[in-house]
Design a protein around this nucleic acid. Structure first.
Ligand SMILES: [Mn+2]
Ligand SMILES: [Mn+2]
Ligand SMILES: [Zn+2]
Ligand SMILES: [Zn+2]
Lengths: 141, 141
DNA sequence: ATTCATTTTGCAAGTCATTTGCATTTACAT
DNA sequence: ATGTAAATGCAAATGACTTGCAAAATGAAT
């Protein structure tokens, strides 16, 4: 009766093996919700399993993305962030000062975009909405 | 009395020199409005000025971005697109089938996001809003 | 517990877009 | 025509990410 998360069950169901590395990556996302780069995941897991390799991180991040367990965010040009894939969806407010990423639930598609899309015969599958600027702390110089 | 564009004037005002390469890059964006990768700009300009180098393309794209003449778009993970920076701003609807990028003028910030941002004391400077999916042609399989 | 097919890993090397250092060339004010 | 700052071409470097492959680990079947 280990405290196996739904994630680990989902992996098993799909014929994936539960390696220490994989467990640690998952545990990290579950224990410290946030938006992380592959580098950050690597460093965190490396603290516990020092033999882990970067390619293992990438391979597992991709696997977890494909299974819908985590989500890849292209917030910053040239570097991906990953977050646990919560039900529903949300958008981000990103501070260019401290890098903090807050989440917002307002969604442009529900309110304004959908009718425009229908008019142009476009089948939308996903969308991105991010706001950049300075948070309260960073803007008070 | 050459038909010098406002862009070339702006460059001169800032002490930039008008090289053939620079002129050609600008002319391309003006003559064929669209959303281009550095590669695409390179190929187009190379057709006229065969000695042009990729680093010249990148250096000029950055320069033109910094001067607000063109805009860098991070639509696709890992590859930047550039477009002429029109007055006002707009957003994009991107077809995952044919790659076509249509522009839309509806803006989530004007209608919904601004009050939320004010409430959280966030000073927004920019935002991104993109919709992905399949255009009329691509979705009729 | 042992066996074994299959999956996963570590490692090293490879991509690919973009950047950088530097010697040479070019633009343009004088 | 000259001088100087700016820009270019070239080659090498970067940095995030990917891939091939032999060795190791997992877990289902004995
Ligand atoms: Mn989030
Ligand atoms: Mn556009
Ligand atoms: Zn949304
Ligand atoms: Zn907008």
């Amino acid at each position: 009766m280990s405290n196996t998360s739904w994630i680990e069950n989902k992996l098993k169901e799909n014929g994936c093996k539960l390696t220490e590395q994989r467990r640690l990556i998952i545990k990290f996302f579950e224990a410290e919700p946030g938006h992380y780069t592959a580098q950050e995941v690597f460093e965190k897991v490396k603290g516990i399993c020092s033999k882990i390799n970067f390619s293992t991180i990438y391979r597992n991040l991709e696997l977890l993305c494909n299974m819908g367990i985590i989500k890849k965010l292209d917030i910053e040009s040239g570097i991906s962030h990953y977050e646990l894939n919560k039900p529903g969806h949300h958008h981000h407010v990103v501070c260019k000062g401290c890098g903090d990423m807050k989440e917002i639930d307002i969604c442009p598609c529900e309110t304004i975009a959908n009718k425009e899309l229908k008019a142009m015969g476009f089948q939308a599958t996903e969308h991105k909405f991010e706001i950049y600027g300075y948070c309260r702390n960073c803007s008070k110089k």
